[in-house]
Design a protein around this nucleic acid. Sequence first.
DNA 1: CCAAAAGTGTTCTATGTACACCCATGC
DNA 2: GCATGGGTGTACATAGAACACTTTTGG
Lengths: 230, 230
Amino acid sequence: MEALNLPKDQSLARIDLEIRVVVFTLHGSQLQVLLSEAEDSQTEGRWSLPAAQINPHSSLETSAAECVEMLTGLSEVYLEQLYTYGDPSRRPEQRLISVVYFALIPAFSLAHPGCGSGKTAWFSIDALPKLVMDHVEILKYALRRLRYKLEYTAIGFELLPEAFTLSELQHTYELILGEKLDKRNFRRRILEAGIIEATDARRMGEGRPAQLYRYRADAVAEVKARRLFP
Amino acid sequence: MEALNLPKDQSLARIDLEIRVVVFTLHGSQLQVLLSEAEDSQTEGRWSLPAAQINPHSSLETSAAECVEMLTGLSEVYLEQLYTYGDPSRRPEQRLISVVYFALIPAFSLAHPGCGSGKTAWFSIDALPKLVMDHVEILKYALRRLRYKLEYTAIGFELLPEAFTLSELQHTYELILGEKLDKRNFRRRILEAGIIEATDARRMGEGRPAQLYRYRADAVAEVKARRLFP
DNA sequence: CCAAAAGTGTTCTATGTACACCCATGC
DNA sequence: GCATGGGTGTACATAGAACACTTTTGG
């Protein structure tokens, strides 16, 4: 390739490339994120977004998916590329390029967090520990993307188990969007959209049992984007 | 960093990193893209998205901006990161990671295309030449992003000169969205949005002279996104 | 029978859409 | 004076927002 990646004989003779993942889930009516404890002495006590091994035979996305599976035990989760961070100021000694992916896993599936090297743990996004480098900014950006996509895609279902009640779905939306929604309007619109269907089960609990629904994978959720300009 | 970027002693001992730019503009009522002619013997006759030099002291975005400036003579153009491509299948011998940026330059400013190494030229997006590797896919993705963003941001103005008529603006939208828009509705809504203001100049030409407008940088264009679900 | 959550319709308002004619200039 | 593109308003249809009570279960 004619595009030389680096000035061949200069101080910055190497570029480090890594993959990081931002994994969100719902738990205890809070949005949580998975973090790894930093191991090296310099950053001790700080936490970081988990890093994926770059598998030489897989795409970057697949490497990220393998990492999420290792960390959570779940495959087939929602995963998309978030952004690539490469500012020299993030680590002046040696340039570090981080390709960051963003994953959602269903609530109530908080399986073995950890297994890879080092400790990992879930944190509520409004009680984050100290993070290394620019990982807070990355996390905030991921959160913005989540909120944003929730409004115009069917991404919300990725945070719920296969069967869920309409109240659970509504609470998910309220939690992430940070605002209360009208119950009747919510139900009418989501049912009219035809993207969920009732199962024959009900969720028992306090009060009247609730109908359980499932997401219809065959449903093409039309994004009727209201244009900024016509 | 604990995140090892590469398996240290393996066949794939190196990763090539490059920056590519997709530069769009309007010209002759067509959307055009800037391409470089491939130089090496293997890909002779094929074209590629222009590659930026990675400046060791600048961020990736700044390196991309410098590339656009070198190619077009324009600084301060609209620029955003598009996507990072890193699939091993794009170049099996040696992994190539391409961080791709996406730029818009105003119509009628088709200054010196070229100056860097090799020829560059503008192509209408519906008369593209043969492109190398996966550059067609990248280009198509950039186009999708352009169309999409046009609907919910004020990005359309980046493709127009500082002063423009309402008809020019409307034609830009029609061209990129690929559909006709109603003149009266278009004008009413864009004026009510308050994001443009009349200048005291008029564009003369055939027919009645047209009022010239400019984009109001201070205008906060509210994206009243119609949610998929309430 | 009481507490707790589920479930259900209607009215009003705002927004989007469809549509046809007169106006100012250059040639 | 005519050809060319610029400029203007209204009526109808659709979508969104606000709002309160009844139902079903467990304890």
